[in-house]
């Protein structure tokens, strides 16, 4: 009996070895473990044996049966893995074929620049405000210390709707509006982005463009505060190593007035075509709010001082991204827009 089982085991191992797929494996299983299989056949013989023999061979047979089960299971797993691998092989694709074009849109570059500046100033406690684009001569000029007939009005050739109503030529009227609205409520810290219009157009001028106005009014505000603020702005927009330089200038609504230059971010101030070999790039105009402007809008210039600045997001964007013609912003070539479909890098 024992002999038989040993021989049967040898035969089983041989059969198992010859199995190549799950079908053949099943045949082997039926041959040994089926209702009419060898193991069942041996079990039925067991009935005719003595109790001692039953005990001895029964255990032996049971071990054999367990071993067969185990080996069959092991083989099954091996075969399944093999077949899965075969299937995976057939499912292989060409990963170099083009991807599906998932629709994704872009922010206009001016929006990017404006939002970046807004976020910076909001983080310093400024409020972002707005004002009308169709503005009164009163706010656009007169309350900014530009009475009718003032020669400085020439620099801002305007589109008029009526004698007293025009398209604002700068975002500065918001200064007067905010001061008036805030009268007696003390300090002001605002920026105001928006569209402005001038009767002027060529490669460097567009009849419509954007500006961002900044205004801080408080007791004891000085030009040092203006410089400190613009230094933070310059570092955020053009890199940590940037510095700010003031040049005296003239705006009717600030006194003193300055133009601010940022040290050239391309050559680090050494001189290059971008900065016209000066090491500096003009970025905005600013100054201390003129006492007439404060007074006209209800602030006592003896108590309060303030600074104001005005910058052009177009210019900032042109510098930042190397855009060479202001008209790109308004023709909206899809190829141009899609260039801005990514996060900022860090060239420096």
């Amino acid at each position: 009996m024992k002999e038989k089982i040993i021989n049967l085991k040898k035969e089983f191992l041989k059969d198992l070895d010859g199995v190549n797929n799950l079908g053949e494996l099943n045949e082997v299983r039926v041959k040994y473990l089926g209702k009419k299989g060898y193991i069942q056949e041996l079990s039925s013989i067991m009935g005719s044996l003595s109790i001692e023999e039953k005990k001895e061979y029964g255990m032996f047979l049971n071990d054999f049966k367990n071993e067969v089960n185990e080996l069959l299971e092991k083989k099954r797993q091996e075969l399944e893995e093999l077949e899965l691998n075969k299937k995976l092989e057939t499912e292989k694709i060409d990963i170099t074929l083009p991807a599906t074009d998932i629709p994704v849109g872009t922010f206009h570059p001016l929006t990017r620049v404006i939002e970046e500046i807004e976020e910076l100033f909001v983080s310093m406690g400024y409020d972002v405000v707005e004002g009308p684009e169709i503005e009164l001569d009163l706010y656009n000029f007169e309350k900014l210390n530009l009475p009718k007939g003032h020669p400085a009005r020439d620099a801002q050739d305007s589109f008029y709707i009526t004698e007293e109503v025009l398209l604002r030529t700068h975002t500065s009227p918001v200064q007067a509006r905010i001061m008036e609205a805030n009268k007696d409520k003390g300090p002001i810290r605002i920026i105001c982005p928006g569209k402005v219009y001038r009767r002027d157009e060529d490669a460097t001028h567009s009849h419509q463009f954007t500006q961002i106005e900044g205004l801080v009014i408080d007791e004891g505000i000085s030009m040092a505060h203006l410089k400190g603020t613009l230094e933070i702005f310059a570092k955020k927009m053009f890199g940590e190593d940037r510095t700010i330089r003031f040049r005296p200038s003239f705006f009717p609504f600030t006194e003193p007035s300055i133009e601010a230059d940022v040290s050239c971010f391309k050559c680090d101030g050494k001189g290059c075509p971008l900065c016209k070999y000066t090491g500096w790039i003009e970025i905005l105009g600013a100054g201390m709010v003129h006492p007439n402007v404060l007074r006209m809008s209800g602030y006592d210039p003896e108590k309060y001082t303030g600074f104001a600045f005005g910058m052009g997001p177009e210019r900032i964007a042109m510098l930042k991204y190397g855009i060479n013609d202001i008209r790109h912003f308004y023709t909206n070539d899809m190829r141009f827009l899609k260039d801005f479909n990514r996060i900022e890098g860090s060239d420096e």
């Binding site: 998932i102 994704v104 849109g105 872009t106 001016l110 929006t111 398209l167 308004y330 909206n332 827009l337």
Partner: peptide, 12 residues
């Protein structure tokens, strides 16, 4: 923009 549209700015 997340729905795939590109922002433009044109003249008023």
């Amino acid at each position: 923009t997340s729905l795939g549209l590109n922002e433009v700015i044109t003249y008023s």
